[in-house]
Design a protein around this nucleic acid. Structure first.
Lengths: 168, 168
DNA sequence: GGGGATAACATGGGTTAGTATGGGATACAA
DNA sequence: TTGTATCCCATACTAACCCATGTTATCCCC
């Protein structure tokens, strides 16, 4: 599960250190629970958000989830095609180097207006990459909005099952 | 899984470099999970789309999936016969040369109005080949439509165990 | 609990290998 | 021959790999 927020450097060669937390999340996905589709890939997958000037990303498992979701839709549903083009076609596989860095293609950096520094935002199943300044404003806003909507934050079901090795 | 988009040159001899990502996807399919049908083929399979002036393609695994799908239909269902003729009969095996290129038959290039440059579009299980100009407009459009429909892109439940029959 | 040793992380830079692409030479068919 | 397809070689460019270093966090011993 992607958690936390951290700002790392984007160097002259377009490289970023992926936070160590995030790396262990995707490595676990890749090695541990192999879905039979023997596609192993040690890295992250990133694409430009269609909702703003930032990048979205996750591990290979996230993409498989999206694939499963889309393949349940009509093959020629316009929305399905749009999602396929906006996510699959625009995404890039970024694999880790020996130090846990990835090199971010220039067009992605441009899209999210990144230079010098980037902020990784853990969001559970996926994460986002923002220019630090752009994200700052939002973070404050989010807390306020969360407060206004706090009544909707109701945990349901799965009472208090002792729950085995929750682990991780 | 075919991901990303890239534009490569179509030279005077009708050759195109298949993106390295795509090559490793099909090679993996060919070597890794051999379904018993020991048909190994190091290359891609391409046919003219019946939905527009572009080409569709994938690895041998994709064609097997279509075969399985069609074989579940009534043998004399007109639609089945039409699919078989439109896909199987029109498709061409394009094998890689030493540099990872394929040579695209002229009639396919003509069908998709390709000259000089072509754009490969990764769409998960399959990919498309477009004339760069034709695709450009679509890509912008796709992002907008994806945004409008974003509420439909909801990953539900399925905690975080990738579970069984996951795709690919 | 304090303080030093050790490992992990983030970052910079140089070198190497892979990718994309052009062109020529060879084999085969019309 | 002429056209076409395949194979081989050469090259610019870029991404991957390797090594080094500062800084932070963790461990362990006293």
């Amino acid at each position: 599960m992607f958690l936390s927020r951290s700002t790392n450097a984007l160097d002259a060669k377009g490289r970023i250190s992926v936070p160590a937390d995030f790396r262990s999340v995707v490595s676990e996905q890749a090695s541990g629970l192999n879905t039979g589709s023997s596609e192993i890939f040690d890295g992250i997958i990133v694409w430009p958000s269609f909702d703003g000037p930032y990048l979205e990303g996750g591990g290979i498992a996230l993409l498989r989830d999206y694939q499963a979701l889309l393949e349940n839709m009509d093959p020629y549903d316009d929305a399905r095609i749009a999602f396929e083009r906006a996510i699959f076609a625009e995404s890039r596989r970024l694999s880790f180097d020996a130090n846990g860095r990835v090199s971010l293609p220039k067009e992605l950096a441009d899209y999210a207006q990144l230079n010098g520094q980037v902020t990784f935002i853990g969001l559970g199943r996926r994460f986002e990459i923002w220019s630090p300044k752009s994200y700052e404003a939002l973070a404050v806003n989010a807390r306020e909005m969360a407060r206004e909507n706090r009544h909707r934050l109701r945990l349901v079901g799965r009472s208090n099952t002792p729950q085995n090795g929750g682990a991780s």
